[in-house]
């Protein structure tokens, strides 16, 4: 049985995302951030988005394009320290920000992708991050309930893909991408290289094709993907 070819155009894939959507975006800093998908999302311009991303990139990059365009209502993230613009918008009340401990953010996304509703942990007990969370007693100790984070769309970046949607990430560009690819209703992947179906060995696949709905081949890699000069 042949695999389905999931190749899609950038415009048609991103056009699926409407006002109020919950959108996960892969990447930790520059590595793994799907800049081309984000750029097209800015061009389309849906409003009131909830963005779920580890960080807010840096001013003038990636997530910051969405923030500056006024498209983001709420940001669920672990750290925005490299983006002064995001901090300013948060302090001015222009965006709502929910801070989640980084590994708890990853696990809440992973859990959604695993078809589960949440998990319990002791991370953050005795700190501000425990406030307002549901508590459970297990074997005499108190734990926090951490709900799964679900989303309508996941935008992910892969180094290589086959046309069927099997994805391979490179080095620390993997980060949140494989977790988000599993967690959303609809996963849109961009890939630097798209190979014919069968050209990625089954053992080498990081994200299996069934998790990917639309695959966008990047014709070229804009400069924003390169080494950041600070």
């Amino acid at each position: 049985m042949p695999a389905l070819d999931k190749s899609a155009g950038l415009t048609e894939a991103i056009a699926l995302i409407g006002d109020g959507a919950r959108v996960m975006i892969g990447g930790f800093g520059v590595p793994g951030t799907p800049f081309c998908l984000i750029e097209e999302l800015v061009r389309r311009g849906p409003k009131n988005l909830t963005i779920i991303k580890n960080d807010a990139n840096e001013p003038g990059m990636g997530v910051d394009w969405l923030l500056s365009a006024g498209m983001v209502k709420r940001l669920i993230t672990s750290h925005v320290g490299l983006n002064g613009n995001a901090i300013r918008m948060m302090n001015a009340g222009e965006i709502e920000v929910e801070f989640v401990a980084q590994g708890i953010l990853a696990e809440r996304i992973r859990i959604a992708g695993a078809g589960l509703k949440g998990f319990v942990s002791d991370i953050g007990m005795g700190t501000l991050l425990a406030e307002g969370k549901q508590r459970l007693e297990i074997d005499g100790a108190t734990y926090l309930f951490e709900p799964a984070i679900e989303a309508d769309f996941a935008l992910v970046h892969a180094a290589r893909a086959d046309a069927g949607g099997n994805l391979v990430y490179e080095a620390t560009a993997r980060n949140f991408n494989p977790l988000m690819a599993m967690a959303a209703e609809c996963t849109i992947a961009e890939a630097e290289t798209v190979l014919p179906i069968g050209d990625i060995g089954p053992d080498a696949v990081h994200t299996p094709a069934p998790f990917v709905d639309h695959l966008v081949a990047l014709a070229e890699l804009p400069e924003v993907y390169g080494v950041v000069k600070r």
Partner: peptide
């Protein structure tokens, strides 16, 4: 600016 991975 957020807690990152520090708590864990």
């Amino acid at each position: 600016a957020g807690v990152g991975g520090a708590i864990e």
